[in-house]
Simulated assay, not measured.
Amino acid sequence: MLSQTPLLDHIVILVSHKDLLEISKFLDGQFTLAPGGTHADGLTANKLILLPDGVYLELIAFFDDVDPERRRQHRWGKAKENTIIDWAFTLPSEDDFPAVQKRLQQAGFGGSYTDPIPGGRTKPDGTILKWAVSTPRDSQGNPAQPGSLPFWCFDRTPREKRVPYEAEKKPHSAPEWAKVVYDAILGGNWNYGVPSGSNNARHDISLSSGDTTVRLVFNGSKPGKGELLPGISFEIEGLS
C-alpha cells in the first residue's frame, strides 16, 4: 500500500530561447503564464503555464550563448526543441521518498532512483528557490531516457513560491520495465493526486505502444484541440 499518493508536479517542454521570450503571444489569453527565472547552473531559463489544480507546464530553454559541450552534458541537452521532454512527480513530504525507492527494489525493477540532488533557480524578483531532484537510472546505473519515467521534484522552499497557482489563478503499449515502475510508484490503478487536492477531473496515466511521447488531455468547459507552440498540441475534454 502507498502511504502517500504521488502528485503530478509538472510537465517539461523544451523551446528555443526566442520562443520562451515571446511565449505570451502564442497563448493568447488561453492560459495563465507566470515568470520563471534562471536556473542555478546558468544554462537554462523557464516560464510556467499554471493550471488551476496546481500542476504546471514548464517551458524551458537553453540560453543561446551556452557552451555546446555543457549543453550536451545537461540532462535535456540533446532533446528536440518544441517537444515534451520530461515530467515530474512529487510527494507531500520528501521524507516519504525512501519508501518509493524501497518499493522499486522489491519490485525487481533492476534500476533505481537517485537520492534527491539539490537544485534551484532565482526568480526575476530576486527570490531564491530551492528544491531537490531524483532521476531514474537503468540496471547499469546509466540515466534513463528523459520522459520514459518520471523524475521527482521536492521543494526545500515553500512550493507556493515556485508555483504561485493560487495567487496567479484567474476567475472564469510500453516496455514491461516501465509498467513495473508505474505499478510500484502508483499501485494498480495508476492514479495520481494534484497539489490542490481537487477531484474535479480525471487524474490518471496510461501507456501506449510505439515511440515515447506524452499526450496532454485537459478537462474543461469548451472541448477542442489547440497548439501551445508549433509541434506542441493539447486536447480539452468536456466536463463529465
Results as ranks from 00 to 15, higher is better:
L2T: 07
L2P: 13
L2E: 05
S3Y: 12
L7I: 15
L7Q: 13
V12F: 06
I13E: 04
I13C: 09
L14G: 00
V15N: 00
S16G: 15
H17I: 04
D19E: 15
E22A: 14
I23K: 00
I23A: 12
K25D: 05
K25T: 06
K25Y: 01
L27W: 04
G29S: 04
F31W: 15
F31I: 02
L33C: 06
L33V: 13
G37D: 07
G37W: 07
G37I: 03
G37E: 08
H39G: 04
D41M: 01
G42W: 10
T44A: 06
K47F: 00
I49L: 15
L51S: 03
G54V: 09
G54K: 03
V55Y: 04
E58S: 08
L59N: 00
L59T: 00
D65W: 09
V66Q: 00
D67Y: 08
D67L: 04
D67H: 09
P68F: 12
P68T: 11
R70V: 01
R72V: 01
Q73K: 13
G77P: 02
A79R: 13
E81M: 07
T83C: 10
I85T: 14
L91H: 07
D95V: 12
F97T: 10
A99H: 05
A99Q: 11
R103P: 05
Q105M: 05
Q106R: 12
A107Y: 07
A107K: 01
S112K: 10
T114M: 11
I117H: 07
G119L: 06
T122P: 01
T122F: 03
D125F: 10
T127P: 02
K130H: 11
S134D: 13
S134L: 11
Q140Y: 09
N142A: 15
A144L: 14
A144D: 10
Q145V: 13
Q145T: 14
Q145P: 00
Q145L: 14
G147D: 10
G147N: 07
G147S: 07
G147W: 10
P150E: 11
F151Y: 15
W152M: 11
W152P: 01
W152K: 01
C153D: 11
R156E: 14
K161S: 13
K161D: 15
R162C: 04
V163K: 00
P164K: 11
Y165N: 01
E166W: 03
A167N: 06
A178Q: 15
K179R: 14
K179T: 14
K179D: 13
D183P: 02
L186I: 03
N189W: 01
N189H: 11
N189K: 11
W190K: 10
W190H: 15
V194C: 06
S196C: 07
G197R: 03
G197S: 08
G197K: 04
R202L: 14
H203M: 07
H203G: 00
S206Q: 12
S206W: 02
L207W: 10
S209V: 02
G210Y: 07
D211F: 04
D211V: 10
V214T: 15
R215I: 09
V217I: 14
V217L: 08
V217D: 08
N219R: 14
G220N: 06
S221R: 06
K225A: 12
L228C: 02
L228D: 02
I232Q: 05
S233R: 10
E237K: 13
L239N: 12
S240N: 12
